[in-house]
Nucleic acid binder design. Structure first.
Length: 307
DNA sequence: AAGACGAAAGTGGTTGA
DNA sequence: TCAACAACTTTCGTCTT
């Protein structure tokens, strides 16, 4: 928890919780997300398997994926030594140098541009540096495997970012990525699927719970409602209402129900907007929730009390 | 007038032959 | 590779508050 944030600007509470992985500071009392995506305090790398662990634990200067050549580089040297060579070797030398120049300028120029774009988009979305590093790495692999060919650089950047967000459980919807990058949502989805498949990146299905704090904050719902929504969500998961459905829709419906139950009613429209789904989807999920979880009695009780 | 509800038709993606 | 299919959206009419 950074020292300069002491209390919640909304309710004055000092009961703040810092969620490192999401890079968010959240007020426990009113649920306000005070600061998103500030500084990331976690390690630059997470270890998913022993192979990566071996690569990640290192000594020496950190290699950063966000420099186009990783901060390192190999180049065929300057021409200061070539007087030692015979004519044939000289020709070879120049040929190699020319090729190196061609290849590296092509790839490097691409990487430089891509990384600039990546930084621009991720700062717009206020993503933590661990996610940026990861997406830079993904992009680099994509370039090296020639997966960018035939696709716009920007869309691959967006796809890499989306994949990195998912890996780090910092969910951003495709709509948000689309807005930040100016790339069509479908295009991002396509390249995302393509590069994750081609690079063999395993992505966990995103958990609806991860969306709750952000949506709740956007709707200015208090923490009580928020935890109620999480409760409902967990019940829904036990009742197997969540598999195969869009996570945002379920998260939105849970929030909607929780808000109703806590007398903090929001319209379906409002909830739908922040979650990026339609009212119809909320209604469908909401109906299922009431039916399967038998929450209807509670909601009715609330309604009767209001009348 | 605004919100909630539901039916019907359309869209894009997954799956299985 | 194509058709069936599930989830979700769009649109629109009706009912409720």
């Amino acid at each position: 928890m950074p020292h300069y944030i002491k209390k919640c600007p909304e309710c004055g509470s000092i009961n703040l919780i810092f969620k490192e992985e999401q890079g968010e500071i959240i007020c426990r009392d009113c649920g306000l997300v005070i600061e998103e995506k500030m500084i990331d305090f976690s390690h630059e790398w997470r270890e998913f398997d022993s192979e990566q662990a071996a690569k990640s634990r290192r000594s020496g200067a950190p290699i950063t994926q966000t420099k186009y050549d990783g901060g390192l580089g190999t180049s065929i040297g300057s021409s200061s030594d070539i007087y030692k060579l015979d004519q044939k070797s000289k020709n070879k030398f120049f040929r190699l140098q020319k090729w190196q120049h061609r290849i590296s300028t092509a790839i490097e120029r691409n990487l430089k541009l891509a990384l600039a774009e990546l930084k621009r988009v991720s700062s717009y979305l206020k993503l933590p540096s661990s996610v940026i590093e990861e997406s830079a790495g993904i992009y680099r692999m994509a370039v090296q495997r020639g997966l960018v060919r035939g696709r716009s650089m920007e869309s691959v950047v967006a796809g890499a970012l989306y994949a990195a967000c998912r890996r780090h459980e910092v969910p951003r919807t495709l709509d948000e990525l689309s807005e930040a990058s100016g790339i069509d949502k479908k295009e991002i989805g396509r390249t995302y699927r393509f590069i994750t498949r081609e690079l063999g990146i395993r992505i966990l299905p995103s958990n609806p719970v991860d969306y709750i704090p952000r949506f709740a904050s956007a709707l200015k719902l208090n923490a009580e409602t928020q935890s109620k929504a999480v409760e409902i969500l967990e019940m829904a998961q036990k009742a197997e209402l969540t598999s195969g459905r869009g996570p945002t829709g379920i998260a939105a419906a849970s929030l909607y129900v929780a808000a109703l139950m806590n007398n903090e009613k929001r319209t379906q429209r409002e909830v739908a907007d922040v979650a990026g789904v339609t009212e119809v989807t909320i209604r469908n999920r909401y109906k299922e929730l009431l039916k399967e979880l038998k929450l209807d009695t509670e909601v009715k009780k609330k309604n009767i009390r209001e009348e």
